[in-house]
Structure formats: structure tokens, C-alpha cells
């Protein structure tokens, strides 16, 4: 196995909003490390600040204090185009109406590398082909993006991020709207990608039990603390039972899932 590299590191990061001299802190003392070849799940209840953390890690939002280092360089010091070659995203928002085919959609991932009119070089075509092979969507290439199912579209969006060829991919709740079978296949796909491409993949999710089984590490966000551990360590330390404030939801360490009492 290749030596693992630190791709993204946060140092005493505090996230929140600043408006008119008023600072709203959402979470503080965030120290996480994202390494190559790792599948990392970000879990936490609604409104706990997962989206804010992801926005801060992708550089869309400024941290209140502390720093986000991407390859040892502060994320705010990256030029737009440099950053787009380091970090790609899969968002929850719907795509605007268009006639984009699946191939064209994946090809847009090459935008940071193409010339002024966006024509694809041989290398670009090769990366697009690879991305579509890895996600097994070659047979959809000529379909329009609105003609495919939600599960397929999610794979296409992941292929687009792969084509962008970045060491780090961040996904915001990629499994919402999917049934169990598609959720599992998507998790497995993400796992496979981290193994085969040595990229680091960070994703937020509400499917905690699936994440326990398939991710390498989990970042747990609760009102009191934020912890990054392997799923087993989280279970041993009893962290999951502190995930929700409702006492009727109990984590069963034996079964590795939540039970309603």
C-alpha cells in the first residue's frame, strides 16, 4: 500500500458566520486530517453545521478563526483555477434545465484544464473515459442527464468530479433520495474509488449505520464535541450514543445501529 499523505488539515478551526460585526459560532476546536486513499464520512444531526463545515473546507465560506490547509497551503491563498485542480465537489442542488448529455456533463469536469473555448485534448478524453469506466456509466454516455434515474445521476456527478482529477473529492449528502440498494452501491463505489485512485473522499450523510460499515473514518459532529476516529473506535468510546439529544434513540454497539426504545 502506498504511503498515506495528508491532503487536508484543519488547525483549531472555528466555523460560523460573520455579519455586521456579529459573529455566530457554529462549531469550534475542529482539528481534522484527511489522508489520501481514505473514505471519510461526516455525520451529525440536522442543523449541527455539517454544511457549514463542508462550505468552509471547500473555501466557499471563510473560517471565523483557525485555518484550513490543503497540501500545506492555506485554502484562501489558492487561485480559483489552482483550487479547482485540488478539490472537486458533488452538491445536493439540482442541475439547471439543459440538454447536457451524460458525456458532456462528465466532460465539464475537465474545464480547469481546457483552453479558452473548452476543446478536449487527448489527455482530457482519456480522463473522461477513465472516470466513466470507474463509475460504470459508459452505457449512459449519449443519454440526456434528465433521462436517467437519481441513482445514475449521482454516479454521473461523481464521474464529473473524478474527471476533474483532484486529490480530494467532497460530497454533500450523496445518498439522499436513494433507496437502500442504491445507497449501498453508492457507498461501495466511493470505497472502491478511494482504493483504486488513492483519492481522499469526504462525504456527509445521515446513513450512519451504512457509514459505520463502509467508511474508513468518521467525523462525528455533536453539540458538545467533534471527533474523527475509525468507526470501531467511535463505537468503543460510545460516541454514537451522544449523536442525538433524544434519549429514546439508543445506539446498540453489538448490532452497530440505532434502536428506538
Amino acid at each position: 500500500m502506498e504511503k498515506q499523505q495528508n491532503i487536508l488539515v484543519t488547525q483549531d478551526l472555528t466555523i460560523g458566520y460573520t455579519s455586521k460585526n456579529e459573529v455566530t459560532t457554529i462549531a469550534k476546536n475542529i482539528n481534522i486530517t484527511l489522508q489520501s486513499g481514505m473514505l471519510v464520512a461526516l455525520v451529525g444531526g440536522n442543523g449541527i453545521g455539517k454544511s457549514t463545515l463542508l462550505r468552509t473546507l471547500t473555501g466557499i465560506q471563510k473560517p471565523v478563526s483557525g485555518s484550513v490547509l490543503l497540501n500545506q497551503k492555506s485554502i484562501s491563498h489558492f487561485k480559483r483555477n489552482e483550487l479547482s485542480q485540488q478539490l472537486s465537489v458533488v452538491l445536493t442542488e439540482k442541475l439547471p434545465p439543459s440538454n447536457l448529455s451524460v458525456f458532456e456533463l462528465v466532460a465539464l469536469g475537465r474545464q480547469p484544464y481546457t483552453n479558452w473555448i473548452g476543446s478536449l485534448s487527448n489527455e482530457d478524453s482519456e480522463k473522461i473515459k477513465q472516470a466513466m469506466l470507474l463509475t460504470q456509466i459508459e452505457h449512459l454516455a449519449e443519454k440526456k442527464h434528465y433521462e436517467i434515474s437519481d441513482g445514475q445521476l449521482q454516479k454521473v456527478l461523481i464521474a464529473r468530479a473524478l474527471a476533474q482529477d483532484t486529490p480530494l473529492i467532497i460530497l454533500d449528502e450523496p445518498t439522499t433520495h436513494l433507496d437502500l440498494q442504491h445507497k449501498v452501491s453508492l457507498f461501495k463505489l466511493l470505497k472502491k474509488l478511494t482504493v483504486e485512485t488513492q483519492k481522499c473522499i469526504l462525504f456527509s450523510t445521515h446513513d450512519v449505520d451504512l457509514a459505520i460499515q463502509l467508511s474508513d473514518e468518521m467525523i462525528l459532529m455533536t453539540p458538545e464535541f467533534l471527533a474523527q476516529e475509525t468507526p470501531c473506535n467511535h463505537i468503543e468510546k460510545g460516541n454514537f450514543s451522544r449523536l442525538f439529544e433524544d434519549d429514546s434513540i439508543v445506539f446498540d454497539p453489538e448490532k452497530g445501529k440505532f434502536i428506538v426504545t
Binding site: 471547500t58 466557499i60 480559483r80 483550487l83 452538491l91 474545464q111 476533474q164
Partner: peptide
């Protein structure tokens, strides 16, 4: 065509 947020993430 991908929307403004994706466009930003593409530099």
C-alpha cells in the same frame, strides 16, 4: 450549465 456553485468549484 451546471449551476453557479458547480461553476465556482470549477474555477
Amino acid at each position: 450549465l451546471l449551476g453557479e456553485n458547480y461553476a465556482k468549484s470549477l474555477g
